[in-house]
Simulated assay, not measured.
Amino acid sequence: MSVNKAALADHPAAETQTASAGVVPAPPGAVEISSSAAPGAGSLAGDLLELSKMRVNLLALVTVFAGFALGLRTSTGGSLASLLSSQNGWLLLHVLVGSFVLAAAASMLNQYMERAPDALMERTAARPLAAGRFPAALARTLGILLSLLGLAYLFVLVNPVCAAVSAVTAGVYVFFYTPLKRITSFSLLVGAFAGALPPVIGLTAATGELLPAGWSIFTIQFIWQIPHFLAIAWIYREDYARAGFPMLTVVDREGKATALQVVGWSLALVPASLMPAAVFGFAAGFYFWMALGTSSLFLAFAVSFAIKRTSERARRLVIASVIYLPALFIALVLGA
């Protein structure tokens, strides 16, 4: 996934790049593949929703919930029915609220840092900061304040371990992934690390500790993000090239390296999906076959894209990916 900057400079669509360009505008795990703004964009409420990346972060909350439910199922004497208890219900609500506040804050800071290159892309030019509708200084202040509020909320109302994992997630995303996007396509791996932590946040909220089960679902989500994001990057490769983003899909004009990465990581997702059943033994039977089936289907879409690298097949892979992940986690929770 190394980047050939000479090839980037020679790309026909890179003529409009500026010195400030060089970042990838969407984080790994993002599911937005449309340039349209959120409903209500242009109003203050609509701009705040757009800054919080509501649609993207809702999927992250699904994985937080899955991690929380899994933590209850795998804890001593725990059961899924315990979700209905008042104590666990409030705890779940607190971790979801705190996680969303922190994710929204990180999204605001990310868009603040990327507002100049975002303005160069059709897909992101309508965002509040890129379009100049929302004051950049206010977005930065809101991002910082909401980050502190979200972390304090999780620390006090959930537990310190959950707050610590959440701090690592936001910190890696804002302070490492975002600036690295200006330098190398390897930033995708850094972003995937941060993007794989939400289910671990949910699990630590339920258990108060880091369990082996947490690293199994971390591994699944880490691997899943790479073919998912590369498919999105392939769809918008010309748009990214216009802004000078050093991405594999930009410099790999024929798409052979991109296809190899997509198939390779999708293939790795098959054993990773089976890891909870095969290694930890808490999700045998139903989950094993569900994981094998869904990951094999995901691999089939990846191979289809590799054979014929069109935007339409990339879109199908994106759709398959956003169906696969929640389906797998639901099966994991039910089968644990």
Rank of each mutant, 00 (worst) to 15 (best):
L83N: 07
S187C: 15
A137M: 12
F229R: 03
P179A: 08
A104F: 05
L325C: 02
A213I: 07
S82N: 09
F286A: 15
Y324M: 14
V168R: 02
V270I: 15
G42N: 04
R133A: 15
A306C: 07
V24S: 03
A206S: 12
A300F: 03
A302W: 01
G150E: 08
F329T: 09
G281Q: 09
G71E: 10
A268M: 15
S273W: 10
A131T: 03
G171R: 11
S43D: 04
W224M: 10
I323Y: 09
Q261K: 09
G98R: 09
A205G: 14
A336M: 04
A302M: 00
Q87E: 15
A19K: 10
R115T: 03
M121D: 05
L299N: 01
A6V: 12
L92N: 06
A206L: 03
G77T: 10
W215P: 09
A9V: 10
I220D: 07
Q221N: 12
V31R: 08
A194C: 09
I144D: 01
F134E: 13
G40E: 08
V23K: 00
R309V: 13
L83T: 10
V200T: 05
A130G: 12
E209K: 05
G40S: 07
K181F: 03
M1P: 00
M54Q: 04
L61R: 10
A164N: 01
W289Q: 11
P227F: 03
K181V: 15
A278M: 13
L203H: 06
I217H: 09
N159R: 12
L58S: 03
G22S: 06
R313S: 08
W90E: 12
A26N: 08
T258A: 13
A259R: 07
V172T: 07
D118I: 03
T63Q: 13
L197F: 06
L61E: 14
L70M: 14
T258W: 02
A130F: 10
R140A: 09
M113S: 13
S52F: 03
G281W: 11
Q225C: 05
A268W: 06
F218W: 12
S52Y: 04
A19H: 05
L269A: 03
L151A: 14
L92T: 12
G77A: 02
P179D: 10
L157H: 11
A125F: 02
A137T: 12
R133P: 02
S52G: 04
E114Y: 01
A241I: 11
Y236Q: 08
A257T: 12
A81G: 04
G293H: 11
A170N: 07
E122K: 11
A243W: 06
N57Y: 05
G214V: 08
S20A: 13
R140F: 06
L51M: 11
S34M: 10
L146R: 02
V318K: 10
G285I: 11
L188M: 14
A7Y: 02
A38E: 08
A206C: 06
